[in-house]
Amino acid sequence: MSLTVPASVDDHHRHDLRPRRSRRRWLWLAIGTLGVVGLLSLRAFTGELGILGVPGLGQDLLTLATSVIIESLPFVVLGIVLSIVVQTWLPDNFLMRYLPHRPVFRRAAISLFGIALPVCECGNVPLARGLILKGFSVPEAMTFLLAAPIINPITILTTYQAFGFDDGILVGRILGGLAIANIVGWLFSVHSQPQAMLTERFAAQCSATADHHRQSRSEKSLDIFMRESSVLMPAVFIGSLIAGAIQVAVPRDVLVSLGSNPLWSILAMMLLAFVISVCSSVDAFFILPFASTFMPGSIVTFLVFGPIIDIKMLAIMRTTFTAKVLVQLSLIVALMSAFIGLVINYVA
């Protein structure tokens, strides 16, 4: 199988498009910068919105949403920068070196890759596809895909910033994420037809990445920055708004009664994680306001379930795995997340 694209055609198109793409990049950068400045200004004035006649609920919504955004934005940008370093500046075979031969240990080692790959779940899907192309088995790539967004340094840092070591939330998230990834990896390694887990279009879509090898590193870095920003920033903004809206719209006593029930608190958190699809780099800040209402185990459930299974991730993973596999994956991850949450609720 070859993914090579005729050089002449590619060069021709690149030559034609380069000036326009460059201008568009700078335009987007300018818009992004202005957006951040506008956001900071909005935050500065949020406390005085009363004099502008904004209704109280609107004030609460803006305050809650912008608080989450302001808290998470530096980490998102840092994550993107580190992602660029990993994807652009590390050698291609860097991850393949020194892996154990026994499948269990090999998957355990792969599940730790995320520590050196500070990329959230959206960025991990293309990486996982790349790993399969590099010779990884499907369960191994799946192990990486599930563990990496949870144990990547940005996620660990933000979770620590939000919760410290309180109630075992940070430790529960890390160990729980690793456990889920390895158990799912083991389970699907039993599958007798690994190729049946993949979509037919997978190989064809992979060929689209070939173009990146022709770019200079700076061009590729800029491309990744734009791509990651365009995926992450809307998720951050929309997730923050939904978070604010939920807290404003849903009566607090409903949240409290849900949050203090061992079963409903976990189910509610899984539903919340599934719907809002917030990035693992910032989900700890998102869920922090709920920490005083919901039991710690349900918070951990949110933090291990959300990075693996949510609307956005299912949509992205569907590009690689069949619907049946995604259903099986969702069921196992949901049960394991609930189990981890229930154990932490009991122990913590």
């Binding site: 199988m1 399969i132 010779g135 088995s137 499907v138 007798s192």
Partner: peptide
Amino acid sequence: MSHISISDRPGGPRSGMR
């Protein structure tokens, strides 16, 4: 270009799936 490691298991697909 590396090959994709997705070979089926021995013993037949049906028994493997079971």
